[in-house]
Amino acid sequence: DETGKFLVLALYDYQEKSPREVTAKKGDILTLLNSTNKDWWKVEVNGRQGFVPAAYVKFL
């Protein structure tokens, strides 16, 4: 159920650099879980949760 969740689009490829991050490919649609940090947003992609740089994604 996606009610109340926001989707964001990956603008660039991002390769995770730590276990707390997730890899995303340009064009991926990610479920935004938390955007309270202006630099790192928590997302879910391909069943995995983790952080990506906020500058790499935008709201749909």
Score class of each variant (00 low, 15 high):
residue 52 V to Y: 10
residue 56 Y to G: 06
residue 35 S to V: 09
residue 20 R to G: 15
residue 38 K to V: 09
residue 60 L to K: 05
residue 18 S to Y: 06
residue 48 R to W: 07
residue 8 V to I: 07
residue 57 V to G: 00
residue 57 V to P: 01
residue 33 L to Y: 01
residue 25 K to S: 07
residue 59 F to T: 09
residue 49 Q to N: 05
residue 18 S to K: 05
residue 40 W to L: 01
residue 38 K to W: 06
residue 34 N to L: 07
residue 58 K to A: 14
residue 6 F to C: 15
residue 5 K to D: 08
residue 33 L to G: 00
residue 52 V to F: 15
residue 30 L to I: 07
residue 2 E to G: 14
residue 28 D to C: 11
residue 48 R to N: 05
residue 50 G to Q: 02
residue 50 G to K: 02
residue 48 R to H: 07
residue 16 E to W: 06
residue 53 P to H: 06
residue 6 F to G: 11
residue 36 T to H: 11
residue 41 W to E: 00
residue 23 T to N: 05
residue 30 L to K: 00
residue 12 Y to Q: 10
residue 36 T to A: 12
residue 52 V to L: 13
residue 40 W to E: 01
residue 17 K to A: 10
residue 18 S to C: 12
residue 56 Y to A: 14
residue 31 T to R: 13
residue 58 K to S: 13
residue 10 A to Q: 07
residue 9 L to D: 00
residue 4 G to L: 11
residue 7 L to P: 01
residue 41 W to D: 00
residue 40 W to H: 01
residue 60 L to W: 11
residue 31 T to K: 13
residue 2 E to S: 14
residue 12 Y to K: 11
residue 24 A to S: 04
residue 2 E to I: 13
residue 38 K to G: 08
residue 53 P to T: 07
residue 11 L to I: 11
residue 38 K to C: 11
residue 41 W to M: 03
residue 17 K to G: 08
residue 40 W to V: 01
residue 49 Q to V: 15
residue 1 D to M: 13
residue 60 L to I: 14
residue 42 K to D: 04
residue 10 A to G: 02
residue 25 K to A: 07
residue 48 R to V: 09
residue 17 K to H: 09
residue 27 G to T: 02
residue 25 K to D: 03
residue 57 V to M: 11
residue 55 A to L: 09
residue 10 A to V: 15
residue 53 P to W: 11
residue 34 N to S: 12
residue 41 W to V: 08
residue 42 K to P: 01
residue 60 L to E: 05
residue 8 V to C: 10
residue 22 V to L: 10
residue 58 K to N: 06
residue 27 G to P: 03
residue 43 V to F: 03
residue 28 D to M: 11
residue 50 G to F: 05
residue 49 Q to H: 07
residue 43 V to Q: 01
residue 58 K to D: 09
residue 33 L to N: 00
residue 43 V to A: 01
residue 43 V to C: 08
residue 49 Q to L: 06
residue 57 V to R: 00
residue 5 K to I: 12
residue 25 K to V: 09
residue 37 N to I: 05
residue 40 W to D: 00
residue 22 V to R: 00
residue 7 L to Q: 11
residue 43 V to H: 00
residue 15 Q to N: 13
residue 43 V to P: 00
residue 41 W to N: 00
residue 37 N to A: 07
residue 14 Y to M: 03
residue 54 A to V: 07
residue 8 V to A: 06
residue 47 G to W: 04
residue 60 L to A: 07
residue 23 T to G: 08
residue 41 W to R: 00
residue 37 N to L: 08
residue 25 K to P: 02
residue 45 V to P: 01
residue 53 P to Y: 07
residue 40 W to I: 02
residue 24 A to N: 03
residue 8 V to Y: 07
residue 37 N to M: 07
residue 10 A to R: 02
residue 47 G to N: 06
